[in-house]
Amino acid sequence: MMFRFLSVGLIVLFSLVISTESVFAGFGVTPPYVRNTSLTRNSTYEQQILIVRGDPNTELKASILVDAPGFSDWVEVLEGDEFILPRGEQKVPMTVRVKVPSDAEFKNYNGALRIKTGAVDNAVGAGAVNISLGALIDLEFNVIDKVIEDFKIRKIGISDLNEGKKIGWLFFPGKINFSMMLENTGNVDVAPSKVAFRIYDASGKVLLEETKNLGKITKVKPFATEQVVAEIPTRLPAGAYMARFEIMNHDDVKLEGEVNLNILPYGTLQAAGFGFAGLSLPHKISVILPILAIFVVIILMYISRRRNRIK
């Protein structure tokens, strides 16, 4: 029989013996805690915990017991206080949500959350001391009166790109898509304030171009980890380059380093380049001015017509 019950037969015949069955029961959780030290009032934090069984050949019921003095009503398991650990599922996710009320005190909160397993129908083996297994999950929160705008870059990525292209007098630069796996370690939405590239020749000796991201980078919500992309223009021709990058959070350099950069001849990749946004300021002006002029002419013609009608 699987781990859910360690049957210990207890028969009282004015003497006591223990009976029982052999069991090698495995159970676990990861991580065994829910922690956040930068919660603010009205903030919400979610963390996933995996419940692991060594031998999931029977469906079980997981019961959640929240032991959180003074903040038990903040803590919620999205799957409910009881949920099923299906047969055959070696690991089952469980999400703990913490919703900090608007009147929460600014202090540390410590508690525990216990997971206890049992038979789905609460059945127990008759004439035995049934044994159920469970795990203790620490709860540790700190509610603070401070905005923390910080993040950690867990991973970066850069893919090959097409070189820019000249259409008429307009040069549309190539687009470097610089992806970042960003973990918001603060308590407000955050994104890198700037991603700067210094692009060198392949040997890394000759600086060829300095550039930075255009447009805003999508912000990541507090406590979340998401991939965001910085779009960086380059006017360099096809070739192999070495780029030194800096990911900035205002004045702080959150990550810096070197990456190889391969710019391919235009049209090699089926990837979109920069549109109007990538044009240099003079080129933008050279496009906007004629359009503005046409608008002005149209407006003047309109005004002139109206005056003629009034006359």
């Binding site: 008759a126 049934n130 469970g134």
Partner: peptide
Amino acid sequence: AYTGENTFIG
């Protein structure tokens, strides 16, 4: 026969 239930929490 006596029946009971003990819980082990890791």
